[in-house]
């Protein structure tokens, strides 16, 4: 009965317009999975943030703004400020290292570049537990790099560098560096190589060509990369715990602590919704930055082609 319909859908014109029945069935799978296991969990979390807390248990359905009211607490503001400061300084440090590194990476020979990329990807996917643990060893008194100072005779006793703010920043920098490189990599790879060459031909030193010609061209990409790395380090959960003191515990640590150990799921959900709001608006900013810089590149290319056609 449905055969004529199916045939009609399989004509070339219809294939572009819509999907055949078998295709629709296949498309239902990702839609169902993402709705049930992504959209509904977020809805549940939003609902839970308005639920009432039951001491000792998890929660009870209801509607209260109690969990959101707890944001006015000075303790929450202090941890929020600490979280932003830590993520901000760590991402800045990451970019300072990643920009010159990525620039060098894009100009390497193919197989050298692949080697570096394999190393970067491996470190990027290394578990935060392993990173935190190894840095706590590296910064400890007994096994740490402080012992090099003792060995050189600069200090009598190795300094204890972890836990502390410096250790958290080092760990986050290690975590964020490969991510920063991978965010910058496409941008810097697609940059017109003749730009740098032209500046060099006109007598600029490599550094000056980079600073005055390349950098202004990637300014927006840098801001976007900064925000992406910021959101990434904002999500770190184990490093602040393993390398920091309780004062340096960031929002994700507090969220997990409230959810699992204080049994206050509504408050954890409210903080999570807050964190979601902050990171989502930052990511939207990145999308907006990306679109406007793309528009600029298109503008430039149309100007270029008009100048070229005018010249010929």
């Amino acid at each position: 009965m449905s055969a004529p319909v199916l045939n009609a859908q399989q004509t070339p014109a219809a294939a572009v317009e819509g999907f055949s029945r078998s295709e629709t069935v296949t498309l239902a799978w990702p839609m169902i999975m993402l709705s049930v296991f992504f959209v509904i969990p977020f809805g549940t979390m939003l609902a839970v943030s308005f639920f009432e807390r039951v001491p000792g248990g998890f929660f009870e359905p209801g509607f209260t703004l109690d969990s959101y009211a707890r944001f006015i607490d000075p303790f929450f503001f202090k941890s929020l400020g600490m979280t932003m400061m830590i993520a901000g300084s760590a991402s800045l440090l990451c970019l300072i290292l990643a920009v010159p590194f990525t620039w060098t990476l894009t100009r390497m020979r193919h197989h050298h570049r692949v080697l570096w990329l394999v190393a970067l990807l491996s470190i990027l996917s290394l578990s935060e537990v392993i990173i935190g643990f190894s840095w706590s060893l590296l910064l400890s008194r007994s096994t740490g790099i402080g012992n090099i100072l003792v060995w050189l005779g600069i200090e009598n006793r190795a300094p204890k560098l972890s836990p502390g703010l410096g250790a958290v920043l080092t760990g986050l920098c290690y975590l964020g560096f490969p991510y920063a490189v991978l965010v910058l990599f496409p941008q810097l790879s697609r940059l017109d190589p003749t730009l740098h060459e032209a500046a060099r031909m006109l007598g600029a030193s490599p550094r000056r060509a980079f600073m005055n010609v390349v950098l202004p061209n990637i300014a927006k990409a840098l801001v976007a990369a900064f925000i992406m790395v910021f959101v990434f380090t904002l999500g770190a959960y184990l490093i602040p715990q393993l390398l920091g003191k309780p004062q340096q515990w960031t929002l994700p640590v507090l969220i997990a602590d409230q959810a699992l150990f204080q049994s206050n799921l509504p408050f954890a959900a409210a903080m999570s919704i807050f964190l979601l709001g902050v990171s989502l608006s930052l990511v939207v900013c990145v999308g907006w930055l990306g679109r406007s810089s793309q528009a600029r590149i298109e503008d430039q290319s149309t100007t270029q082609s008009t100048t070229q056609s005018a010249a010929s």
Binding site: F37, M45, G235, Y237, L265, L275
Partner: peptide, 15 residues
């Protein structure tokens, strides 16, 4: 993948 994973984790926990 873009958002802090703790958000997804908490959503899935409540789910």
């Amino acid at each position: 993948f873009v958002l802090p994973p703790v958000i997804t984790a908490l959503g899935l926990l409540s789910f």
